[in-house]
């Protein structure tokens, strides 16, 4: 097994253990909802980027089925967004800095993978485009996530899903 495969497995493992170990029990639902929500958008976005030749993933986990690397686009980045949501600070100024830091962390991970491994390759892409993409995706996900979490009264009527 090559270096890239090991990194890929480490990403899968760290994502899953991070979810199991680091999530506070009472915030698991919130984290999962945010993660699922972000995953849906990242999935579509990376399919569009890859099919138009902006990014390619030369070494990936399911090479026969999909040209996107699932380790980052399916597991790691969605989970990072989930963690971003559950630890969001209350203060408005801190929240701005926090948002910029979270977006930068995801971009940094991607850039590190570009430089040191063959997992990600920017064909017609740069780090600042990646940063803008992630930033926009964060905001798009926030729209639906905030819609879901607001209106407590409306929510009370809906929660009666009996087993």
């Amino acid at each position: 097994m090559g270096f890239d495969q090991i990194i890929m497995m480490l990403i899968w493992l760290s994502g899953i253990t991070g979810f199991v170990v680091l999530t506070p029990k009472h915030l698991k639902r919130r984290l999962l909802l945010a993660t699922f929500n972000f995953q849906a958008l990242v999935w579509l976005c990376s399919l569009i980027l890859v099919s138009n030749g902006f990014i390619s993933y030369p070494i990936r986990d399911f090479p026969n089925a999909i040209d996107v690397l699932l380790a980052t686009e399916y597991v790691l980045y969605p989970l990072l967004y989930g963690f971003h949501i559950i630890y969001k600070p209350k203060n408005l100024v801190t929240r701005r800095i926090y948002l910029l830091t979270s977006v930068s962390i995801i971009t940094a991970i991607d850039v590190i993978l570009v430089y040191f491994t063959d997992l990600v390759l920017y064909v017609h892409y740069t780090w600042y485009w990646k940063w803008i993409t992630i930033f926009v995706l964060f905001h798009l996900t926030n729209i639906t996530f905030n819609w879901f979490m607001k209106e407590e009264v409306a929510f009370e009527n809906e929660k009666r899903v009996s087993p």
């Binding site: 399911f62 026969n64 089925a65 879901f148």
Partner: peptide, 24 residues
Amino acid sequence: RRIAFVAFLSMQVITNLFGVLVVE
């Protein structure tokens, strides 16, 4: 709509992975 939203997203996460697996 909220229930539908959660159902949609959770199923999407499941099928995205399984869809890839059956083709792989």
